[in-house]
Design a protein around this nucleic acid. Structure first.
Lengths: 66, 66
DNA sequence: ACAAAAAGTAAATTTAACTTTACATATTGT
DNA sequence: ACAATATGTAAAGTTAAATTTACTTTTTGT
């Protein structure tokens, strides 16, 4: 499972802390998600896709073995 | 958080057990998700939207307070 | 170069997703 | 009505998501 959060964050000029605050999670959670340490809940995924005006499918990409 | 899994399942003529097997979770998980007892992981949400040929956004709907 | 801001990391804990087993109720076909 | 299939539910347990605190490293601005 890959994700494009770092890129979207750059497009929207947000720091990890900014993003964390906007969607109501800890900064470390954003960092961990970007680094692929875990996959966020559907709730978070939806909030992220909404904020970035994209889709969950574009933000989170299924890979072989998922 | 609402979801339209029951409807999609009907469209595709699948039982809860059928769907559970197809995406690799227990039947009770499907039932619990349909009943709104919990929100599935992003991984499951993506598998469901793929199987039903729709989007996570259409399958899972954010509500007030989410 | 220096300071400040941003990002990375990690251990310990809490909360939520998901499983298993097991049984109860509802629906459908004959 | 009866049997089979499908759905609902619940308790107990496991796994994964997310938090908190706290510290280190990297990046950016002046």
């Amino acid at each position: 499972m890959k994700n494009t959060i770092k890129v979207e964050r750059a497009k929207h000029d947000l720091t990890q802390a900014d993003l964390a605050e906007k969607i109501g999670v800890s900064r470390q959670s954003i960092n961990a998600i970007e680094k692929g340490k875990f996959v966020p809940s559907t709730l978070l995924a939806l909030k992220l896709s909404k904020l970035f005006d994209t889709s969950v499918e574009e933000l989170f990409l299924l890979e072989e073995g998922d």
